[in-house]
Design a protein around this nucleic acid. Structure first.
Lengths: 305, 305
DNA sequence: ATATGCAATAAGTAAATATTATTTTCGTCA
DNA sequence: TGACGAAAATAATATTTACTTATTGCATAT
């Protein structure tokens, strides 16, 4: 098979029409040039130079070869330069799976910041239910996962506590609790609730937060179960009842339409975990992303960003 | 410097994502593939494959390399194929120098025939005075020369008698000789002549042809000396005198305007020689052209073509 | 003629490339 | 778990290739 070096020697020889000079320009000995040319001539089974006494001259075949050899050599140099330019540079493509709430309220800010630091890294975000996001991570279909419940069923993934997404109690603006601003835990039993489904992150978070209290989420008067927090905020706004949603939702779509009511002695915090593979080796981009998310300082409580 | 073979191994490995299979497809051993990949990785100072247990996977750098390597390998194959296609094929570019008459009346037909046999050979014809045409051949500026006088001053050229271009006596149509159709040699002294210059091929040819007769060209009544045969034909046509021109001119531009008069006992023939280098090595195209012109059967006398 | 410039050849050494045999590492199947 | 199996890495070795110096052979120029 052809060798870019050999063709390069040929090109210099074709340019100088003098093997000795060509050898000097290539920093090699004259016989070496002769040998390379002879090797090429044997390879192509045709002569490339006419040796007329002391003068050298390209044959027709040689003339045909020159421009093609030039192309190959410059392609070779392009490769070298491109690979060289990759040195230390962080680039590539990351796949991040995440569940609904993190996908809507956490990732956008996070990725904007990450993109600032590593503009050559493309990130694709796959929003899907919790379990599926974690499955994809375990199967290697995504490089990272952002979710509020870290399944331990998968050995190949490592999860760390990434940040805290507060969950708050919201009521209609004209609700009595809204006037008071805060309530006692036991008062929760007095109202009709609109909640997420039982296997949602928000539901579990509230359930776990109430575990140390006298109130059980299962015994609340549940009027309605909805599949997403925005729908709950809208229902609350319409006066159907009260509910728990991520603070981001309450101050986002719910701002000025619902009231946030504090529950004395209870702060509900939905932990958001970030997970990655432990077995699969990782690229520079993956390491950079991990370094980024584990070093970034995000308040554990309070408004997200 | 990069080696197309190594990149090809990389490409197959990247395609199969399995070094053992890649080795089989390349007809080499598995460790050899490993070594090539390692060599590339060392060369680029970056890893190209992620070795995750039993599964192989390209790194970002590897993904960047694949299309570029493909380009280089296909360029390499293009070169191989092109050079292969040159095998035995006759192509290239010939330079033929020739003097005026052969250039006008011999070469066009000759080249048309040659082109038929070897359509890939380009031919450039340089028309110039005799001496210059031969000089260029000797200096290697042209590959062949077609001329009626073969200088022996140049050691590096070989000339062979190529064909015979008859030189004929022409008169105005209403001239007495034209009525007779032929004359005796001695009658030449009776007329006014329009001739080419003394160092022209035509002049020398006529002079040499008369050498064995009682007539000397120098003693003819020379009315006018002109630089080309067409001008002579026109002047004869106008009735200024009679002259000697190549039969091709007489039957060409002179047809129906001048008469051809035979001189009893005298056939004037201008030998046209074709010359080539003997020292400089020759290309296939040159050999083909030489073979063509030396084997072609051209009547030694009579109308050209 | 003689000297010089330049390519070809010869011979020896160093380096790269291939091979076989072996080890290591995972993944898989009892 | 533990043994087996597949696949890559490693080791050791042989072979081929590439480069070097020294020499020869032409062809040109003085």
């Amino acid at each position: 098979m052809l060798d870019a070096h050999q063709l390069n020697v040929f090109l210099i020889a074709a340019e100088t029409l003098n093997f000795t000079q060509a050898a000097q320009r290539m920093n090699m000995s004259q016989p070496s040039v002769s040998q390379h040319i002879q090797a090429l001539e044997r390879h192509f089974n045709t002569s490339l130079f006419l040796r007329a006494g002391r003068t050298l001259q390209l044959t027709d075949a040689g003339l045909v070869l020159v421009p093609m050899a030039r192309d190959l050599v410059s392609q070779s140099i392009l490769i070298e330069e491109t690979m060289e330019s990759l040195q230390g540079e962080i680039f590539g493509h990351l796949m991040v799976g995440c569940s609904t709430t993190p996908g809507k309220y956490v990732l956008p800010h996070l990725l904007a910041q990450f993109h600032n630091e590593h503009p050559k890294v493309r990130v694709t975000c796959l929003v899907s239910p919790q379990a599926q996001a974690i499955n994809m991570l375990c199967e290697g279909k995504t490089h990272f996962a952002l979710a509020s419940f870290a399944h331990k069923s998968c050995m190949d993934a490592e999860f760390v506590d990434f940040m805290c997404d507060p969950v708050v109690l919201i009521t209609p603006l004209n609700h009595p609790w809204a006037q008071k601003g805060s309530i006692e835990i036991e008062e929760l039993y007095d109202e009709n609730f609109i909640l997420r489904e039982e296997d949602s992150g928000t539901y579990r978070t509230v359930r776990d937060a109430l575990r140390n209290t006298s109130v059980r989420i299962e015994r609340l008067k549940t009027l309605l179960t909805l599949g997403n927090s925005e729908a709950i905020a809208l229902s609350v706004q319409e006066g159907l009842g009260v509910g728990f949603v991520s603070q981001a939702v309450a101050t986002g779509v719910g701002r000025d339409h619902v009231a946030i009511v504090k529950i004395n002695g209870l702060d509900i915090c939905r932990e958001i975990y970030i997970g990655r593979h432990t077995r699969l080796p990782s690229t520079k981009a993956q390491n950079a992303f991990w370094d980024f998310v584990t070093s970034i300082d995000i308040p554990k409580m309070g408004t997200i960003f």
